[in-house]
Structures are given as structure tokens and as C-alpha cells.
Nucleic acid binder design. Structure first.
Lengths: 192, 192, 192, 192
DNA sequence: GATGAATGAGACTTCATTCAT
DNA sequence: TATGAATGAAGTCTCATTCAT
């Protein structure tokens, strides 16, 4: 269990904790080593560089995230509920691991990672997941005939933005936002 | 003309260019100085530190952005068109200055700036602007009775996310997204 | 009065104040300019460099100091009293302007000034002053036949060292030192 | 042998050499590193800053100095000889390591170290050492009943000042000073 | 003469990475 | 395999000095 795989995992988990807390540049490799309870040199046994560790950590997180969404989308059969539960899942993730969401968006450029290249495929899979649910809704005549990708991106973007506001920005009005409203607006639109 | 205000402005504009191109950490103070055509020390005549320069630059950009949105919202009287033009404005901004949008979100945390504290007020004003337009739509019986803040945040989040996808992520399907669809979905919702 | 000579004097006096307070390296040329109420550039009208200003300031102080000792030595005719008053003068100077004494000793080396070359002549004059008083005492058969220069240096060194202890070091025992003891020991020696 | 203690010692010794030669401000950390034969970064493994290195170096030197004086005072039993040998020791130290003495007095203020706080205890011990020898002389009825602390400070001050003149100032008359005169004057006083 | 905005050389310090053990 | 002492490249910031006004 404490074999090679175990130690790599240990380091990744320590890096999640530290990178989330302080960001990429303010986290020292030695911080991660201390957090993981290994020597500084050991990190370089498993990862080529700090940057590479960051990339692998991002991929690991993206996988975890995708799997959670996948589970929700597969388990819930009612179309509109799928979207409701997706929103609830996002809320749960962001409340518990919101700093991860920030990490994803924030660091890539400044590190000089082409985040689109790395995360692209995973993101594509995720969007497809949502878009397929929308397609299904269209096919079942529950949804209007709209571009499912546009709709998926719209839906995801709205959810992220609002939850981000609600959880981080702490505007006075953000507090009053409730998940039902969000669900309602996204499903029914603004217009009468 | 080349007075104090002029030189400070010069440096801010050079910093926009460099920070956008390389991000905060990879941009050297000397890079900005060279770009601005001034000496390295001159930067420190006008700004206490690199971090402070970044903050002032962000505030400058936020003002510019707000003023553009304000203009659109004030000039267009037709409610649904307001939102259409808002989307078009965002598309224009992101196409031309998309790297700015990335800057905003990306660097703050890693620099150790409390971006919410700094940008909070400006963000609040912007959300109010959109929310007021929605309120107006509700009052005129054009929009459904929804929470205007939730709607505003939903709207803005969707627009950003989709445009970001369209312009940066360059997914195969993102390319096919068109502004009309976005406008349609946001106004009419997904459900029939 | 506010002519060239006046302004140079103004700068020297400001430099005394600032160099004493913060030392050579921590005093900025602009500090001195502000203190003198002139522009930074003006300093360079009167002095070639910060270092040169420091040297001229030292010479100015050395003159002042010498003149005070000279006055005491000339005015008091009683030989042993000359030494008593010399000690009292030193005490007064060190209490009021002790930071000057520190300046003299401290900065020269670190600035890269050959303090001995600069201050040498003035120091020589001062030692001669004391040595001559001792010679006079020897001639008048009041003092033992000792080397007057050794005695002068002994005398001056003791006075400085003790007053320094008393005024700056603030040892528990230094407080109890009194000027009469010092005078007594230097005049009568330690041995019975 | 080349263990942690050894390397720290190595750096301290290199710093003595360089600080003495050029003073605090003109000595670069890289100078010390080169002199010690280590990398620049290694200095910071052992010392928090250049200033801290200087302080630790001062403490090290003060200890060495105290131990030498202690040895002389303990080994010589004849009271008046103690003072003779003390003078000879000081002469030896100042001839060999006179630049150290300058360092002590010169740099502290300009660096912003409270030298009195740091060196206070060590200085106190040293003065006690000399004062105790004087007390012993008084008890044995060899010395007059004088304040032993005033006498100790007088004695030490004189010795330093004269040796400083002799060794550094190189006055014409300083050359002619001899140790016996100094010893004689300090023990017998000036007055008949 | 007087000014102070502009300058850029220079030094401290950090920290990712290496490598001998 | 695991380690952490050693390294040195790199970048921010300071401040004496200049020079156009």
C-alpha cells in the first residue's frame, strides 16, 4: 500500500492541499514534501518538475470531477432532475472544494501551461455528457429544439458563475440566490 | 501632455500588454519598463510595487469594462435588445481583449490579492446594472417574475462561459455556437 | 545671509542631524534635502557626492569640537582644573551630542574614507593641546615626569571610554561612575 | 568533520575576513560565499540574513576576546603584572586583529543593530573581570581605595585609545609611546 | 542657481532542482 | 529508493546621481 503508487498518490494529495491553500507560485516544493511526509528529493523521483506535478494533479482532479458528474447523469433517469442534481452536485463540490475550482482557472496561464491542450479532452467529455442529456430532452420533446452544445455550455457557465458568486464573492444579493431559482431560470428562460 | 498623469497611464498600458501576454509572475518589471519606454526605476516612482501596479491596472480595466456595459445599457431602450447588445459587446471585448478576462480571474489568488475586496464594489455595480434591466423587463411584463439578481448572474455567467469556450477553448462544437442561440436560450430557457 | 555660504551651511547642519539619527548608509540624500528644505539637486550644487558631504561635515564637527576644547584650555589657568573642566566639557558634549562621537568612529571605515588622513591633522592639534597642558604641569613640577603624549592619549582615551559607557552602554555600574572619581584616578593613578 | 558545525564555522571565518577587509556594506554576500568556498545560497542555510551573520560573527569574536583576557587574568597571580599582561595582550590582539576592533565599533549603528543590547552581557563580564582584579588590589592594599568600576573603565579606555593611536593613527608622537609608560601612568597617575 | 523626475546599476534573497550518500 | 544539504540563476526594489527646465 505504501508502494510506489501509494507514495505518488500521497504527493498528489499533499499538492492538492498546498496548491489550493497558497496557489502555485507561493507553494514551495518543500511545503508539499512536508505535507506529504516525504523528503524534498522524493518528489523528483515521481515527478519531473513542480510544473509537471501541477499538471498531473489537475488531471487527477479533472478525472474525479468528471466521474462525479457522470455518476449523477447516469443514475438519475428523469431529464429535468438530471439538471437539478447536477446543480446540487456542483454546489456540493464548490462548497467543499471551491478552492479547486479557483486553482483550475487561475494558475494555468501564469505557469505557462496550455491548459486547453491538457484539459481539453476531459472538458470535451464533460460537455458531451451534459449535451447528451439535453439532446435526450429534445428527443423526448421535453426541451425546445436548441443547439445542445450551446445549451450545455450555457447551463454549465451559469451554474459555475452563480455558485462562484454565492460561495466566494459573498455579495449581499448573492446570498439570497437559491438553487431552485437557478434551476427555474435555466430551464424556463427569462422571457414569458 | 507628457505630465505625471501621462506617464502613469503609459506604464499602466504597458503593464496591461505585458501582464496579458505573460501573466503576472513571468512578466518582469523591466519588461514593463521597456514596453513603456521608461527606466525601471520610473515604475517605482509611480507604483509602490509590482503587485500594486497590478492592482491599479485591474481597477483601471474594471472601470473601462463597466463604462462600456453602462453605455450599452443606457443607449438601447428596447429591453430584449439590451441583452442582445450586451452579448455582442462581451463578444467584442473578449475577441479583442480576451486575455484581459483571463488575467482577472487567473492571477489574483496566486499573487495574494483579495480580489473580492478590490473588485467587489465594481462587480456589484455591474451586476446591479444587469439586474436593473431585468427588473425593468419584469415591470414591463416582458420577463417572468424571477429573482433579478439570480437572473443577472445566470445571464452574465452563461455569456462569459460560452464566449470563453468559443474564443479560447476552441472545441469543435464551440465553433458552431452562435450568438443568436445563446440569446435565445437565455431568454427562453431550455424547456418548452 | 541666504547666500551660497548660508545654503551650504544649511545643508551641513541638516546632514549632521540626519547622519546622527540614522547613520551614513541609512540616510538618503533626499532625507538631507528635505531636512534642509532644499531640493535634492541642490545638494549636488555644493557637494560632489554624498561621501564628500559626509567628509566636509566631519571636518566641520572636528573644528567645532577643537574650538571648544581650546577655549577651556586657554581660559582656565589652574593646571589641574584644566583637566577637570576638560572632562566636564566632554561630558557636556557627549550628553548633548553623543551621537556625533559615534558617527566619527563608526562610519568612516564602512564608507571607505581614510579617516586618519582626513582627521589626522585636527586630531594632532587636539592631542598637542592636551599634551601641552601636561607639559606645563610637568614644568611647574605639579605632574610627574611622564611622556606628555602618552599621558594626553591616556587621559583622552579614558575620558571618552568612560563617558561612552556612562552615557550609552548604561551598565548598572556605569551609572554609579562620577566625574570626580574619574578625575581622581587619572590624576593620581591606581597605585598607592 | 565537514559537518554542519564545520560549515557554519567556515562561513563565520570567511565573514570575519571579508567584513574586516571591506566593512559591512561593501562586503557582498557573494564575497563571503566565495571566500568560504561555498555557494551563495549556502550562507542562507545557516544564517537568516547578512545582518544576522554579522551579529553572530560579532558574538563569536567577543567570546574569543573575552576568553583571551580571562586566561591572562587567571594565569597571572601578581596584581600589577595582571595589568601589564593585559596591556600586552591588547597590544598583541590589536596588532594582529586590529581591524576587528574597528569593526565592532564602526558598523553596528549603521546596520541598525542595537550593539549595546547584543554585546552588553559580554562587555559586562569583561569589565567585571578587570574590576575584580582592581578590587583584589585594593583588598591587598596595593591599590588606593577607588571605585573599581570607574578604574576598570578608565584603564580599559586608556589602553584601547592609546593602542589605537599607536597602531592605526600613526601620529608622529604615537610612535614614541611605549607600553611601559602607559602602564606607569595608569598605575601611578599623572600627579606627583 | 535650483529643482526633482528619471534613471539603472547593483545586491539581497528565494527556491526549484541536483546529487552524493 | 529516499533524502536534504548545497547550489546559483533570477528578479524586485533602492537610491545616488544626472540633467532638462
Amino acid at each position: 500500500m505504501d508502494n510506489t503508487k501509494g507514495k505518488k498518490q500521497l504527493i498528489i494529495e499533499a499538492s492538492i492541499k498546498m496548491f489550493c491553500k497558497k496557489g502555485f507560485h507561493k507553494t514551495k516544493v518543500s511545503d508539499i514534501a512536508t505535507e506529504a511526509g516525504v523528503g524534498k528529493g522524493t518528489i523528483y523521483e515521481y515527478f519531473d518538475s513542480k510544473k509537471q506535478l501541477f499538471i498531473e494533479m489537475m488531471e487527477y482532479l479533472a478525472d474525479q470531477y468528471y466521474n462525479k458528474v457522470l455518476k449523477v447523469m447516469n443514475e438519475e433517469k428523469n431529464i429535468t432532475n438530471k439538471f437539478k442534481y447536477y446543480i446540487l452536485l456542483e454546489e456540493k463540490i464548490m462548497t467543499k472544494h471551491g478552492d479547486l475550482a479557483q486553482l483550475f482557472m487561475q494558475e494555468a496561464h501564469s505557469i505557462g501551461i496550455d491548459v486547453h491542450q491538457i484539459m481539453g479532452k476531459k472538458r470535451k467529455k464533460l460537455i458531451n455528457l451534459i449535451a447528451n442529456a439535453i439532446k435526450e430532452g429534445i428527443d423526448k420533446n421535453i426541451f425546445r429544439k436548441i443547439n445542445p452544445y450551446t445549451a450545455a455550455l450555457t447551463f454549465m457557465g451559469s451554474v459555475h458563475h452563480i455558485l462562484y458568486s454565492k460561495i466566494f464573492a459573498k455579495d449581499d444579493f448573492s446570498k439570497e440566490i437559491n438553487i431552485e431559482d437557478l434551476h427555474d431560470i435555466l430551464l424556463h428562460g427569462i422571457k414569458k
